[in-house]
Simulated assay, not measured.
Amino acid sequence: MSQTEGARLFRETWIAGVHRHFPGEQKGRFVATSRTAQICGHFEAIEEAPG
């Protein structure tokens, strides 16, 4: 199996698992790395802070 075929198989398997655990219509969503999510969450908390 080539690297491209392996990557495609991994992607298809990953997506099938997501659909199995989260059935229904999927919404387009960016899945951030944990560090990116922490930074975005930090900025959102600052923007929502009173004063």
Rank of each mutant, 00 (worst) to 15 (best):
F43K: 05
G24N: 10
T33D: 11
Q26W: 05
P50D: 12
P50A: 15
Q3C: 07
M1C: 08
S34K: 13
I15F: 05
G51H: 06
A7C: 05
V18N: 08
A37T: 02
R29S: 12
E5N: 10
V18L: 15
F43V: 08
G17S: 12
R35K: 13
V31M: 13
V31Y: 15
R35W: 02
H42I: 01
G17D: 03
R35I: 03
P23Q: 06
T4F: 01
G6A: 10
I39F: 01
A37C: 09
I15L: 08
G51S: 11
R11A: 15
H42S: 09
G24V: 06
A37F: 04
A49N: 05
W14E: 10
A49K: 06
I46N: 10
A49G: 02
L9T: 12
E5S: 15
E25W: 00
E12Y: 03
E12N: 03
F30G: 02
F30I: 10
F30V: 13
A16Q: 04
H42M: 11
S2M: 03
E12H: 06
E44V: 09
F22C: 09
K27N: 03
Q38H: 03
A32M: 11
H21I: 05
F30A: 08
R8L: 13
H19C: 06
L9M: 12
M1R: 07
F30P: 00
I39M: 04
R20G: 05
H42L: 07
S2I: 01
H19R: 15
S34C: 10
A32S: 11
W14P: 01
H21D: 09
T4I: 02
T4L: 03
R29P: 00
L9H: 15
Q3K: 14
I15D: 01
F43I: 08
G51N: 13
R8A: 15
R29Q: 15
A16K: 04
I39S: 00
T4D: 01
P50N: 13
H21G: 05
S2T: 13
R11H: 15
E12M: 03
E12C: 01
S2A: 09
C40V: 10
K27E: 10
T36G: 07
H21N: 08
L9Y: 11
Q38W: 01
